[in-house]
């Protein structure tokens, strides 16, 4: 930190304390606030976000669809390559960029005649395939973490983002998602994604596919 940053820090904190009419908080008070943060209490969780089981799955599907995500139901993971072939235009040789997860890489892509690549996404990529850690029922939101096997660019750069979601990973509310995130070391990025990219910046008319993916396809098994 530069000297001026340090001076500013001192000034800002002093002014806040002056405004509050007190010195820095006592060690005891700080301890109290710290522990409130380490064991965070939930605020009011709306009824809707407390859904479980089939009710949560139904709500997830309804809300994700409303947000213009597309949902395809699969009997088994093995059906996935076949499903994806329909997305690739005739003669398009661009590879399917997949997250380096064994459950995805082990699939029989060759039989489906799909060339795959395991890397970060690049400009010009057409389709990416990733998994997610959860689907949040209350708003049809996917939760994705960054990591060595799941580069964030896969969620953003390609025109079509395909996401594998297991029904047992559908949860009620955002709080449930944070509980999952807290089970491991916090990653660089956590993406909450609700439908494909969009903008209404021209005359408030909603257009899909602004900078992120134009289509978000959720494969549910």
């Amino acid at each position: 930190m530069s000297t001026s940053s340090q001076q500013n820090r001192h000034q800002i904190l002093s002014r806040i304390r002056q405004g509050l009419g007190r010195e820095a908080l006592s060690a005891a008070k700080q301890q109290q606030l710290q522990s409130a943060m380490t064991q965070p209490q939930r605020n009011l969780v709306p009824q809707r976000a407390q859904a479980q089981g089939q009710a949560a799955i139904d709500m997830f599907i309804a809300m994700a669809t409303e947000a213009a995500a597309e949902i395809t139901h699969l009997e088994s993971l093995e059906q996935l390559p076949e499903q994806l072939t329909s997305l690739i235009p005739e003669g398009d040789t661009r590879p399917l960029v997949i997250a380096s997860e064994t459950q995805l890489t082990n699939l029989d892509w060759q039989s489906a005649n799909i060339e795959t690549a395991q890397r970060v996404a690049q400009k010009g990529d057409l389709i990416s395939l990733t998994s997610c850690i959860a689907g949040v029922a209350e708003t049809g939101t996917l939760v994705l973490k960054s990591g060595p096997n799941s580069p964030t660019t896969l969620n953003l750069l390609p025109d079509i983002h395909c996401v594998l979601l297991r029904k047992e990973d559908v949860i009620g509310g955002y709080e449930d998602a944070w509980d999952l995130v807290r089970q491991a070391k916090l990653p660089r990025t956590v993406n909450f994604i609700t439908g494909p990219s969009r903008s209404a910046d021209i005359e408030q008319k909603l257009q899909m596919g602004a900078h992120g993916p134009k289509r978000l396809i959720i494969y549910m098994i």
Partner: peptide, 10 residues
């Protein structure tokens, strides 16, 4: 209901 991208950066 929810904005498309809510992104946590750490």
């Amino acid at each position: 209901e929810c904005t498309v991208y809510n992104t946590l950066s750490s």
